[in-house]
């Protein structure tokens, strides 16, 4: 049987600020190399989301101006379908602004609070334009290994009991710079994170985790053949190395 997977990319034109496209390129390539046919549908403002048509959903980040428009559109055309899809096990990855908008609400530095979709039991507030953004390389601990990326966010995200952290910060800020948590998991199949860089190309283990989970749901069988990840692992290791150097410097 030829395996296939169907991915919905939410707002690729609006939510594409920090190389988030690399995540799609990565999923596409890692599927293709294993003979998995991945189709990608791009859903923009006004497009409805069919909760039964996808195995994976991805959403990236954007500037404040775009986020406001997206927040409205999410609630109008996609929120219900997103809840249904996630409840049925569809794998969701939301990065940075996407992560914020899929929480309960986002309270900006100025202006009205944005209601979120509420996939993640979490909320975000921007502490004010004068407060430092969280910007820099991040290394976090995830499932006995590490994830690497770059973060750049003004909003601080706090998790409520329904969500649990995706990872714990080794170097960087993570959700809020206070509690050492990074990202969120809601159930086993919804993932939110501040890591871009892009996230998936340099974290092939996490990319495969998402693919395997989606495959298992759709085809009940998962056997992901190993790929030549020498370059991926090297980029990952070097990002970890840079963080270690920085930590060493700070401790000295």
């Amino acid at each position: 049987m030829e395996a296939d997977l169907r991915l919905a990319h939410l707002y690729p034109k609006l939510m594409n600020l920090y190389g988030d496209r690399g995540n799609i390129l990565c999923l596409r390539r890692r599927c293709q190399q294993r003979g998995i046919a991945l189709t990608v549908d791009e859903l923009e403002l006004g497009d409805t989301l069919d909760p039964n048509a996808y195995d994976l959903i991805f959403m990236g980040g954007a500037q404040d101006r775009e986020q406001r428009r997206v927040a409205e559109d999410l609630l109008e055309t996609k929120a219900e379908a997103l809840h249904q899809a996630v409840a049925e096990g569809v794998v969701l990855l939301a990065v940075c602004g996407g992560y914020q908008l899929l929480g309960r609400y986002y309270r900006p530095a100025a202006g009205e609070e944005l209601a979120g979709v509420g996939i993640f039991d979490a909320w975000t507030e921007h502490p004010g334009a004068d407060v430092k953004r969280f910007i820099g390389n991040v290394v976090v601990r995830w499932q006995g290994g590490t994830l690497v990326g770059f973060e750049n966010h003004g909003g601080r995200t706090y998790l409520e009991p329904g969500a649990r952290p995706l990872a714990t910060v080794i170097s960087g800020f993570g959700n809020n710079g206070r509690d050492g948590s990074e990202g969120a998991m809601q159930g086993e199949n919804a993932f939110g994170t501040y890591l871009h860089g892009s996230l998936l190309p340099k974290n092939p283990r996490f990319a495969d985790h998402l693919i395997a989970q989606a495959l298992k749901r759709r085809h009940s069988e998962v056997a992901l053949s190993p790929l030549d990840d020498a370059l991926e692992e090297r980029a990952h290791a070097e990002a970890v190395g840079l963080a270690k150097k920085k930590l060493g410097f700070l401790r000295r």
Partner: peptide
Amino acid sequence: GRDISWIWD
């Protein structure tokens, strides 16, 4: 620029 994510764009 400290962030190199842009190469993916």
